[in-house]
Every structure is written in C-alpha cells, then in structure tokens.
Amino acid sequence: ETIMEVNLLKGPKGLGFSIAGGIGNQHIPGDNSIYITKIIEGGAAQKDGRLQIGDRLLAVNNTNLQDVRHEEAVASLKNTSDMVYLKVAKP
C-alpha cells in the first residue's frame, strides 16, 4: 500500500468522485475505511489523473477519515474550499 497526498482544485461539478464505506455502511465487510468507488467523467479527479477507483481515502484537509461514519466523510468533502488536500492509500 502506498500513501499519496493529492491537492485537487474543485471544478464546477465539485471534486468529481464518489465514495462508499464508513461505520454502518461498510464497502468491504469488516472494514470501516472510505473508498473511492467512482471517478466522474470530465470531473476534477479524472482531469488530475492520480485518484483511482479502489483508493482508500485517509484524510480530507485536516480531517482524519479512519473509523468515521459515511455521513461524516461526505460532510468533510462538502465543507471544503476550492483547493482540497486529500491523503489516499493506493492498493
């Protein structure tokens, strides 16, 4: 597993990826991690090219996303300014 830091500039459609996982909404049984499950065509993440489906999202800005509820992860992604710092684990 490789840890990678990505600074992503939000586009008109936001960050351009979808997530799944978290406490109460496990993407993988027994694993509370938050995973990237979709990269949106023409979105910021696709244009940047570094994020991939299956990457594990560890942090957004200063918010640690390990062992959080799905709703908390979504809220932390929404409550960001235009430049967003992401910390991901690549499988």
Rank of each mutant, 00 (worst) to 15 (best):
E1F: 15
E1L: 06
E1V: 07
E1A: 05
T2S: 11
T2E: 07
T2I: 15
T2N: 15
T2R: 05
I3K: 09
I3V: 05
I3C: 05
I3H: 08
I3Y: 06
I3N: 12
I3L: 06
I3M: 11
M4D: 06
M4E: 06
M4F: 11
M4K: 11
M4P: 01
M4H: 06
E5H: 08
E5M: 15
E5N: 14
E5P: 04
E5D: 14
E5G: 07
E5R: 12
V6E: 01
V6Q: 02
V6P: 01
V6K: 01
V6H: 02
N7L: 05
N7G: 06
L8C: 03
L8W: 03
L8I: 12
L8A: 02
L8Q: 01
L8H: 01
L9W: 04
L9T: 13
L9R: 10
L9F: 05
L9K: 10
K10Y: 09
K10I: 14
K10N: 03
K10V: 06
K10G: 08
K10Q: 03
G11P: 11
G11Y: 08
G11A: 08
P12F: 03
P12E: 11
P12W: 08
P12S: 06
P12K: 09
K13L: 09
K13T: 04
K13Q: 07
K13H: 08
G14S: 05
G14Y: 02
L15D: 01
L15E: 01
L15I: 05
L15W: 06
L15Q: 02
G16S: 01
G16W: 00
G16L: 01
F17P: 00
S18Q: 13
S18V: 12
S18T: 11
S18L: 11
S18N: 07
I19A: 05
I19F: 07
I19H: 03
A20Y: 07
A20P: 00
A20G: 13
A20H: 07
A20N: 11
G21R: 03
G21T: 03
G21S: 03
G22W: 01
G22T: 02
G22H: 03
I23L: 10
I23N: 08
G24C: 09
G24L: 10
G24K: 14
N25G: 12
N25E: 10
N25W: 08
N25T: 12
N25K: 13
Q26V: 06
Q26H: 11
Q26P: 08
H27F: 06
H27A: 04
H27M: 05
H27R: 09
I28S: 13
I28G: 07
I28Y: 12
I28A: 07
I28H: 14
I28V: 12
P29L: 10
P29W: 10
P29H: 12
P29K: 09
P29N: 15
G30T: 06
G30E: 08
G30N: 09
D31N: 10
D31W: 02
D31P: 02
D31K: 05
D31S: 09
N32R: 05
N32T: 13
N32E: 08
N32P: 07
N32A: 08
S33H: 09
S33N: 14
I34Q: 03
I34N: 01
I34Y: 07
Y35N: 02
Y35T: 06
Y35A: 02
Y35E: 01
Y35L: 05
Y35W: 06
I36A: 01
I36T: 01
I36N: 01
I36H: 00
T37I: 12
T37P: 01
T37A: 13
T37N: 14
T37M: 11
T37C: 15
K38S: 15
K38E: 13
K38C: 15
K38P: 00
I39S: 01
I39Y: 02
I40R: 12
I40Q: 10
I40S: 14
E41N: 14
E41F: 09
G42S: 13
G42Q: 13
G42I: 02
G42M: 08
G43C: 10
G43R: 06
G43V: 01
G43Y: 06
G43P: 00
G43K: 04
A44I: 14
A44G: 09
A44D: 05
A44K: 11
A45F: 01
A45M: 05
A45V: 11
A45P: 01
Q46E: 13
Q46W: 13
Q46C: 12
Q46D: 10
K47G: 08
K47E: 06
K47I: 14
D48K: 02
D48F: 05
G49Q: 14
G49K: 05
R50M: 09
R50C: 06
R50W: 04
R50H: 15
L51N: 00
L51V: 12
L51S: 01
Q52V: 11
Q52C: 09
I53E: 10
I53L: 08
I53R: 07
I53D: 11
G54V: 00
G54C: 04
G54F: 04
G54Y: 04
G54Q: 05
G54L: 03
D55G: 04
D55Y: 13
D55I: 03
D55H: 09
R56M: 13
R56I: 15
R56F: 02
L57N: 00
L57D: 00
L57A: 01
L57S: 00
L58M: 15
A59H: 14
A59K: 15
A59G: 11
A59Y: 12
A59T: 11
A59R: 08
V60N: 01
N61P: 00
N61Q: 07
N62Y: 07
N62M: 08
N62P: 00
N62K: 14
T63G: 07
T63E: 14
T63D: 04
N64Y: 06
N64V: 08
N64G: 12
N64D: 15
N64H: 14
L65S: 01
L65K: 00
L65Q: 03
L65T: 07
L65M: 09
Q66E: 04
Q66S: 11
Q66G: 13
D67T: 15
V68M: 10
V68K: 15
V68E: 03
V68L: 12
R69L: 13
R69E: 10
R69M: 15
R69Y: 13
H70P: 09
H70D: 05
E71P: 09
E71V: 14
E72V: 11
E72P: 03
A73G: 07
A73Y: 02
A73R: 00
A73T: 03
A73D: 00
V74S: 09
V74E: 08
A75G: 10
A75N: 12
A75R: 15
A75Y: 06
A75W: 06
S76W: 13
S76M: 13
L77A: 01
L77E: 01
K78A: 07
K78Y: 11
K78H: 15
K78F: 11
K78V: 09
N79T: 14
N79W: 09
N79L: 14
N79P: 10
N79Y: 09
N79C: 12
T80C: 11
T80D: 05
T80K: 12
S81C: 05
S81E: 09
S81G: 10
S81P: 07
D82W: 04
D82I: 03
D82V: 07
D82H: 15
D82K: 09
D82Y: 03
D82A: 15
D82T: 04
M83Q: 14
M83Y: 06
M83D: 14
V84P: 02
V84F: 04
V84R: 01
V84H: 03
Y85F: 09
Y85T: 11
L86T: 02
L86K: 00
L86Q: 01
L86D: 01
K87C: 05
K87L: 03
V88K: 01
V88R: 01
V88E: 01
V88S: 03
V88H: 02
A89Y: 12
K90Y: 06
K90D: 03
K90N: 04
K90W: 02
K90T: 08
P91Q: 15
P91K: 03
P91R: 03
P91W: 06
P91S: 12
